[in-house]
Write a protein that binds this DNA or RNA. Structure first.
Lengths: 340, 340
DNA sequence: ACTGGCACTCGTTACAGTCGAGTGCCAGGG
DNA sequence: CCCTGGCACTCGACTGTAACGAGTGCCAGT
């Protein structure tokens, strides 16, 4: 693939122009708007090569060129520098996030902030329970045969579940149960709890056995199995920017995908290394999202990652800008979490 | 206004045809599809009257007629009977709602169910804190100067807040605080708590005074002031049904409105009498939603109302069907809540 | 009071023609 | 060998015209 510097410069120029104008860009307009130092004819030759290599394409004969997914990929990997944030943006981030009173608040503010700054759809995953530790388990008697189990994680997440006991349980038994589960489970990572819960049932004095057995089922469900992941979403109205040109005229598949938590989690949650991830067009695994790109990264207090956040938009998006914003917001949120 | 029975029948036929075909309906098609017993010419005369009275209109000179908001209003008020649900729908409702393990689960299942059954956007308000009572307040020590306040309401809602204490507080002080706040507040309606919290600060022994003062601030915030209302949303992808004909081609204003909790609350929350409410077109107060209709009702265990739920869609919607579904779902959810 | 008939309106569709942006190719020059 | 100016070509966008037809309003007749 003989892509010399000028051809790369042409590709970069095409991407930048197309992203900002949303219209196929021709050779003449290109030399006018960028200092390429060559004539349109030369640019045309370069374009022909770029097209042959699959980086750009023509919507129809006699129109300008448009980047392909592959072209965006090359642009993101080799042709763009991360834009520094403007002071105004930094200020917006700080202003938005101070004053958050609890985790729910942090997540909601973050997702709105992201949507506003990037003008895309924003997605924020709540701190994953799988990556959290148990801070405290509380048992609140609701009636003699019902308990409310409240689990508080070190990340600030709070989950609750109703426990239907097999028979009436006196108050001091509840106290015993509370003490036992906390002794055993407090401080443990949620992913490590199943054997501990098992041990709990076996070690417990026989008079507590039935209640503890029931409790353990709910504990396992709450700690491990159940909808352990939560997601916040904002900015869906941004999908309608750019008229109906993006997403080839139908928002339907996009909106459908955004309603599936599983999909969103796969998009922003699988961020193993702490680096920013960019999925362009059909690089993601969902047919519904073939026309969309996702920029995501992990966040967490300090170096540990407890969840993911990101934005979703048309493949024709401002990658450098969005990458910068996503990273900056993730860092701020991490700092915020570290304070608690 | 001389609207005799036949004219009303014509209006009903127009609404029904337009809702199902989504195309302006003409006099000839009307007499073919309905047994009106008169000729097209007669129907045309009736139509002219209906148009003069503002119940229908012509998109352009030589097209069929389309109901106006006023026409839908008359249809809903006087020309339609609530459709009984099909057995399949009843089964779907039951199947969907059994197995819900906690309030979050109930709300999520409900909103998805509503979206699926009506094929519209569904909105469910969490049980309003203003209409709930305190079941239990829990204080969990996080560190010597930090507490997690967990409030459990009788409706199943659980709210938590972090409390930053003015100074270190020993464990048994926390126990005292917990006992005091529960003695005073447990069982009280949330709307009645402010004076009780005030009294609490005044009556408390002086050594607990500083901690209790801080705690009371957070209590008031949690119980009364803060984002006390929550909303679940589903089915936004249904907005794209009917191509771009509904909502005159732009989903933007609708999506924007749906992102504002305040807007949604006004739409489905203000359901003072327990009857079903229908807002057609510009009957609602939001410019963004002039092209939309909302069917909503209250729900709650037994006769009390603790929250609202409903659906939002194009003015061209199946009112009788949606009204029936919304009512039925509200009733089932009420029963479910009553069991807890 | 209803109906059949008729002229009229006007949006939709089809078709032809023009325009112009943009291309590919080629021959010539550094 | 690479670049450039020139040129023929393509094809979508736009415009104007014409035919079509669904639907209407009106009127005279029963």
């Amino acid at each position: 693939m003989g892509l010399d510097d000028r051809k790369l410069a042409v590709l970069r120029a095409i991407v930048e122009d197309y992203v900002s104008t949303q219209e196929p860009v021709g050779s003449k307009a290109l030399v006018e708007r960028h200092q390429l130092g060559v004539s349109p004819a030369t640019v045309r030759n370069d374009m022909a090569v770029l097209e042959e290599e699959g980086y750009i394409r023509q919507p129809h004969t006699s129109a300008g060129r448009v980047p392909t997914d592959r072209g965006y990929r090359l642009f993101v990997d080799r042709l763009s520098r991360v834009k520094p944030l403007s002071p105004a943006e930094r200020r917006a981030i700080e202003r938005f996030l101070v004053g958050a009173v609890d985790l729910d608040d942090v997540v909601h503010r973050t997702v709105r902030l992201l949507a506003q700054l990037t003008r895309q759809v924003a997605v924020v995953q709540y701190p994953s329970l799988a990556r959290s530790s148990v801070r405290h388990l509380e048992l609140v008697p609701i009636s003699t045969t019902r308990l409310m189990l409240v689990m508080i994680a070190d990340t600030g997440r709070v989950e609750q579940r109703l426990v239907e006991l097999p028979g009436p349980v006196p108050a001091d038994t509840v106290t015993d149960l509370r003490r036992l589960v906390n002794e055993k489970l407090a401080g443990a990572r949620l992913s490590d709890t199943p054997p501990l819960v098992q041990a709990l049932v076996e070690e417990v004095p026989s008079e507590l056995r039935p209640a503890m057995t029931t409790l353990s089922t709910v504990l396992l469900e709450t700690l491990v199995e159940r909808h352990e992941e939560r997601i916040a979403l904002a900015g869906t109205a941004n999908l309608t920017r750019g008229g109906l040109l993006d997403f080839q005229g139908s928002l339907r598949p996009i909106l459908e995908a955004l309603e599936e938590e599983v999909v969103l989690l796969k998009l922003i949650g699988e961020t193993e290394p702490s680096t920013t991830r960019v999925l362009i067009g059909d690089e993601n695994e969902f047919d519904n999202l073939r026309a969309a790109s996702v920029v995501s990264t992990g966040y967490g207090p300090g170096a540990t990652i407890v969840g993911g956040l990101g934005v979703l938009g048309p493949t024709r998006m401002d990658y450098p800008g969005n990458i910068a914003t996503v990273r900056a917001v993730a860092r701020y949120v991490g700092e915020l979490l570290a304070q608690n």
